[in-house]
């Protein structure tokens, strides 16, 4: 029996991608940092906020890595929201001292304000990184959805899209995997936070070219299965965004 408060969860259909996040019922949000463990190397994607949340993520990462934080050779921040990256300097103190942080140029500018002083690899659209095993991750920029420096990450080995806030949702009644009502919850997040249809359409156009088996968003639930992925893309394409203008 999985204890979602304490246990890291291996993502269904993968052998090495772990959910190390937490649900926050008070805000109505789930925050979903992910950990890829590729043989003796690992990447932590969007490490999450500070405070009690850091402790939760830290303990889950520790369990997934059996305490060996130095396996984390890579970290990635998909945009500069504090719920994604405020804990960055805390993790930087315990992971491999030569850790590389992958971050888009326009997001990199903000990293010093999170007191992150480590090495950064700045990425642009289509850039790739490889683990020692040869496994390749592709960085795809999604400007203005919902930050100028937003990007997502595609893992071709597992056909997983780590989508940052795109396909995210507000969810008090949270499940790790999206249920039949998820697309509505996704609108509840996307409509207030995405500003412009052109930028959303551009991101969706990029995703439609990928072979995606699952979407792992930073908030909400994992969208599993090609048909569900296709439906989710259609819903985001049709979202009414920019309504606060």
């Amino acid at each position: 029996m999985i204890d979602y408060e304490k246990d890291p969860v291996l993502i269904r259909g993968t052998e090495d991608i772990w959910w190390v996040g937490f649900g926050d019922k008070k805000v109505g949000f789930a925050n979903n940092p992910y950990l890829i463990i590729d043989e003796d190397e690992a990447m932590l994607i969007d490490p999450g906020p500070r405070g009690r949340f850091y402790k939760i993520v830290h303990n889950k990462v520790a369990k997934a890595l059996k305490g060996d934080f130095e396996k984390i050779k890579y970290m990635a921040v998909q945009h500069e929201d504090p719920d994604l990256c405020a804990s960055l300097p805390l993790f930087a103190q315990i992971v491999d001292e030569n850790v590389k942080l992958y971050v888009q140029t326009r997001t990199a500018a903000f990293m010093p304000y999170f007191e992150y002083e480590g090495a950064m690899v700045t990425i642009e659209d289509g850039d790739k990184m490889s683990f020692k095993s040869g496994r390749e991750l592709t960085f795809i920029t999604t400007p203005y959805v919902h930050f100028a420096g937003s990007n997502v990450i595609y893992d071709s080995k597992t056909k997983t899209l780590f989508s940052s806030d795109i396909f995210g949702a507000f969810s008090v009644d949270w499940n790790l995997y999206a249920n039949e009502y998820y697309l509505e919850a996704m609108k509840a997040f996307g409509e207030p936070y995405f500003g412009d249809h052109r930028s959303v359409a551009s991101a969706m156009e990029k995703f439609e070219k990928l072979d995606i088996e699952r979407i792992c968003p930073q908030h909400g639930s994992i969208i599993d299965g090609k048909e569900n992925v296709k439906n989710a893309i259609e819903v985001v394409k049709e979202m009414t965004v920019g309504q606060w203008v």
Partner: peptide, 13 residues
């Protein structure tokens, strides 16, 4: 209500 099903669960709404 439909939106709420996704966020809070059908029973709650």
């Amino acid at each position: 209500a439909k939106r709420g099903y996704g966020i809070y669960g059908k029973e709650t709404i």
